[in-house]
Design a protein around this nucleic acid. Sequence first.
RNA 1: GGGCGUAUAGCUCAGUGGUAGAGCACUAUGUUGACAUCGUAGGGGUCGCAAGUUCAAUCCUUGCUACGCCCACCA
Length: 978
Amino acid sequence: MTDTSPGTGTQSALDKTFDPAAIEAKWYAHWEANGLFRPHRPAAEPFTIVNPPPNVTGSLHIGHALDNTLQDVVVRYERLRGKDALWVVGTDHAGIATQMVVERQLEAAQDKRANYTREDFIAKVWDWKAESGGTITRQLRRLGCSMDWSREQFTMDPHFTKAVVKVFVDLHREGLIYRDKRLVNWDPKFKTAISDLEVETREVQGQMWHFKYPLADGQTYRYVERDAEGAVVLDEQRDYIAIATTRPETMLGDGAVAVHPGDARYSAIVGLLCEIPVGPKAQRRRIPIITDSYPDPAFGSGAVKITGAHDQNDYGVAQRNGIPLYRLMDEAARMRTDGSDYESSAARAGQLAAGATGSSAEIDEINLVPPAYRGLDRYAARKLVVADIDAEGLMLGVEDKVIMQPFGDRSGVVIEPMLTDQWYVNAAELAKAPIAAVRSGAIEIVPKTWEKTWFNWMENIQPWCVSRQLWWGHRIPAWYAPDGAIYVAEDEAAAQAKAGPDVTLTRDEDVLDTWFSSALWPFATLGWPEAQSSPSTCDGEVDRLQGETEGSRPRRITPPSVAKATATTPSQVDGEDQSLLAKHYPNDLLISGFDILFFWCARMAMQGMHFNAGQVPWKRLYLHGLVRAADGQKMSKSKGNVVDPLLLIDQYGADALRFFMASMESQGRDVKMDERRVEGYRNFATKLWNAARFCQSNGIAASSDLNAPNATSAVNKWIIGEVSETLAALDSAMAELRFDAAANIIYHFVWDQFCDWYIELIKGSFDDETKVVAGWVLDQILVMLHPFMPFVTEELWSKLGDRAHYPLITAKWPKPGVGVDTEAKAEVEWVIALVGNLRTAKNELGIAPGAKLDAYLPEPSEATRGIIERNGGAVERLARLNGIRFEPAPAGAAMQIGAGDANVVIPLEGVIDIAAEKVRLTKALEASTKEARSLDGRLSNPAFVEKAKPEAVEKARADHALHAAEATRLAAALARLG
RNA sequence: GGGCGUAUAGCUCAGUGGUAGAGCACUAUGUUGACAUCGUAGGGGUCGCAAGUUCAAUCCUUGCUACGCCCACCA
């Protein structure tokens, strides 16, 4: 029967098989209920990680499993090392994603958002959050993640909203947030602006049309085209200029045709007007032919139509040349129906083309969509435009062409560049500090290769569009007066105070980009901004004990000037009262997938440094890759190749999945899913379980001492030394965040050193010393393995002895220890080599594994005799010998087994075919001779001896001696067989 | 067009300036006081290709090839 209650630290018997499911839930509940994820350690050195907040309504996918395993490994490691380890956890409101989910639910019920008021719809989203919000946090618990749930946060908690508002208001006051009308990436499905990062440019099969734009008033010019050598290939009179476009529907909004200033073909007509060949014939619009550096004379006809309001490139040309921007579409990317009628719009545009000027409001009134096109979808309009031009004979041709097209990463629809008013963050200014921080090492990026990406992106950063035309999110704290004046303030009262009592204010309808708020995660979760001025009221410890929720705490608004001044000087009170922010910011480490490097990490650095007096959000940034499907493909729902981590946990246990993730995480490489490997680590847990069970059944109990016990036997001294070496290697791997190395180190120690050799070697003699040492080693294993496999280790820890009750999760990490006893190490390694050689020889000769053989060791050296006397029993047991006699073997055929300088003789008369042994010896002799000869060749090369490092020469000499001696011995043995 | 990464055993991956390792798979085997989710032994690789540097290159340099990713305004 499995004990279903957490252990009390009292020894109790282990089941024969390890059943992860039986222990995982009970231990997790025990840890959490007892506050062990963040034990009270006010005086301890802090260690802080914030968890990338998952979408509140999401569920755990394999990428989360990797990300959170790595974090938990680090956090558990640091907690065991005695630090005040804080792992901040919470969820993200995920604006677009969550609103999308709820809207989809409405659609499924034949309903839609438009049927609701803003308040009612938001209430529906909150309902959905309440319903599904616990899913992912439950799943993180199943993975064993030791987050501080007592301080769980949500990016729309009241205190978080306050932080967001303060950041917006402050940045606005500093001029780093501003409202601007420019071309944004407009998502016609969600009817909102999105940032550059949310646009995915994909190659699609498209078409490029070539049209004639007739010159005004029937003018003509001589068009001369030359080839690369300058020879004339075409010379004709033309009454048009040829234009190529992939988007004919935007022709309606053309403001000019541009050619390169050095393009001789068109120099004669620059400054003239040409006619856009669409729309009612009587009102064809005329636009000027201008020069700009943008057109490439070598591409197409060299002439580009300029639609400033619907194309990023054209926008730049239009800005440089004062070309009006005519908006053609509505929020759903349909040809607009608002504004002026076509006739007056076209007339007004004609005046503008001729040099008149107009305000942007006036220009926005101009609707250049002819009546026949109004209200059409952009693609329907395209078809019609093409058909109309073609019918008029003005189409020069059409070609199929692969074009780069922007898509909304969430909506999957083609993004339409649109001219709208939005809020922008001056990212270039905020990026300066993070660039410098990485350059100076204040932020260390691991692996280092990402630094270049960091610099490259930050140094070329564009203004960040942060307003979204959504309902779910942090509403922008800006109010508008009827005259268009904008008041940005903490709340409506403050805005009203600024505007004066008689002004009717209307709040901005938009919300902020989700990443604007998650950028504050490393400090807003720690009580910023209040924490800076009132540390004692915002202490996390107090919160936990009182069980208060974040939102219910009293808050005081801090004037920004005070906040800034105090940010640099963390309060000097002791740990107990010190504010969380002062103690845990900067965070020590951030672990994140590289896929959100720009979205999240970069923005955290920008906001974090700006609002914390230049202090970095985290000292190290570790970026891991993607988890891919077994075939190397990206996992996606549409491909149907997603692997559910929870199913893996069900099947193999959380420990196995975690160990898989850690062992596969080598820096700078994606993790390929390999279920068999997960299975292998389940087996590893079972192996450990059985080793512990064996120890327990032999009276080996938990150690009560942190320090290594005193040992006299070589085997015990050796294993203590191995622990020491393993610990050092593990610590160094952890320091470098080499998760794969760390996992492999502990894996091999447990399986190879402890199970395969130590336990086998001590099976003969469970003396008191050995029991103590074995118990101590097992304890060290449990502690060292705990960050990777918390459940099985905690269970074993509790079952293995009457230790004063304390759980493994808050045990103490091993101390560097006594080091390695080189003599004992050499002795045990000699025994291991001898046993190995004996086994190999027996196997190769086909001797029955169970056959017990006689062994002779004539004239052993003093040292060898001692080793045999001390370890003979083990050798006999492991290699199936009848005993080793220190006397010459009887005459006759025998096999010779070497170990170090000793040569064990096993008589083979009546045991085995002598010919087989001859073959074996001959093969071994050849191998030794080949090795020796190769080394000899190197050593007889004067260049090697002179130029190579002395150690290398020395090693070659020693190896040569070893192989030469072995060859001699084997040759002698062969000779003896006759 | 820029930038980055990867190419090592059948598969998935470590690794090092001195003739290569792990897990799984494979072959043989089942004796030893836990473990067949196991034990023991074994086979298997001119470390993508080419040139260079070096006494010595899988590792450093350059070029090439293949695959992958990110960024970028060619209508």
